[in-house]
Computed example of a mutant assay.
Amino acid sequence: MAKPKIVFFDIDDTLYDQNKTVPDSTAEAIHKLQSKGVITAIATGRAPFMFRKLRQQLTIHTFVSINGSFVVHEDAPVYTNPIQKPLLKLLVSGAEKQGFSLAFVNEETMKMHRTASREAIMGIESLKLPLPFPETDPDFYKEHDVYQGLLFYSEQDNREFLEQTPLNTLRYVRWHECGVDVIPHNGSKAEGIKQLLKILNFTPEDACAFGDGNNDVEMLSYVGTGIAMGNAVEAAKKSADLVTTSVQKDGIYHGLQQIGLL
C-alpha cells in the first residue's frame, strides 16, 4: 500500500471527542504529518464558519466542507455546488406544510427559515457551536447561495413529500435523531474530495480519510485508504479498509501508525 500524500479528517467524533475537543494525541499526529509534508485536510458536513478555530488550532488550510459542496485549498475556494433555488422553494413549501423546521447554510452563516421547533433546537444544540443560535430569515435562500439545508424531523415523522419529484433528486443524510442534511443529488464528501484531487493532480490512491458517520461512507470507500473510527456506525466500518480505535482511545494516532505514516 502506497503511503498517502493527503489525509482527510472528519470532525465530529473523529477529530473532536464527545466534548468537542481535540485529543492531544490527535493534534500531535496531525502536526507530525505536516512536518513530513503530508497534506492534512478536513472533510466535514459542517460549514467553514463553524470550524474556523479548529483550523487555526491544527494549522489546516485545505478542507471539503458542507458535505462536499464547498471545497477550499490553501484558504481559497476551488469548487462550489449550491442547491438550485427552485428546489429550495419546493423544500420550504413542503417543510411548512409538515411543520418541519428548516435551516439554510452557506460558507458564512446559517439562518432558520422559521421559528425553531423543539427538534431544531435539539439538533443544533448537539453541535455545540461556539456561536449564537441562528437568526430567522425567511428570505435568506432567495438572496444567497445555499449549499445545504438542515431539515428537522424524526424517523417517525411523515416525509413522503421528500420522496416526490423533484425533491427526490436531493439527498437526505441523517446526522442526528432529529436532524437531516439536505444536499445536492451529486453532493457528498467523496465528490468534494474528487474535485480537490483533480486540482492537486492526485489519484484516489494518494488519499486517506478518517470518519465515523453515515455521511462518511462514500468517502471511506472512495479514497485509497479509508479508516473508520472505533466509535463509527456499522456502515462506515463496512466501507473502510480498516477500523482503528475510538476517538477517546487515540484512534487517529493509532490509525496513522497502522498505515505507516507515523
Rank of each mutant, 00 (worst) to 15 (best):
S188E: 12
E163Q: 12
A240Y: 00
T14I: 07
H61Y: 13
L261W: 03
F210A: 02
M112H: 15
I6R: 06
A232I: 00
A207L: 05
N67S: 10
E107I: 09
F8I: 04
P23A: 15
L200I: 08
K3A: 14
F202A: 01
Y141R: 12
N81V: 10
S188I: 02
L58F: 01
Q148K: 06
D17M: 15
I259C: 02
P134Y: 02
T169H: 08
Q195F: 04
C178W: 08
H185L: 03
Y153E: 01
V92H: 06
E108F: 06
L88H: 10
L151C: 03
T80K: 12
R114Y: 15
H113P: 14
A2C: 09
L102H: 09
H31K: 11
G68T: 02
V105T: 13
E125T: 06
E218C: 13
R174T: 12
V146I: 11
N215K: 12
T165N: 14
F63Q: 06
F9T: 04
N19Y: 11
L15T: 07
K189I: 08
H176R: 02
M110E: 09
Y253F: 02
M1D: 04
I193H: 01
V243R: 06
N186M: 14
F8E: 09
A103Y: 07
K89Q: 14
F140G: 06
A76Q: 13
K238C: 01
T203Q: 14
Y253C: 01
S35K: 14
G99E: 09
F140H: 01
C178P: 02
Q18H: 10
A27N: 10
D139Y: 13
H31N: 14
F9I: 00
K5D: 03
P130S: 12
A27V: 07
Q57F: 00
T225Y: 01
G192C: 11
Q57T: 01
D181K: 02
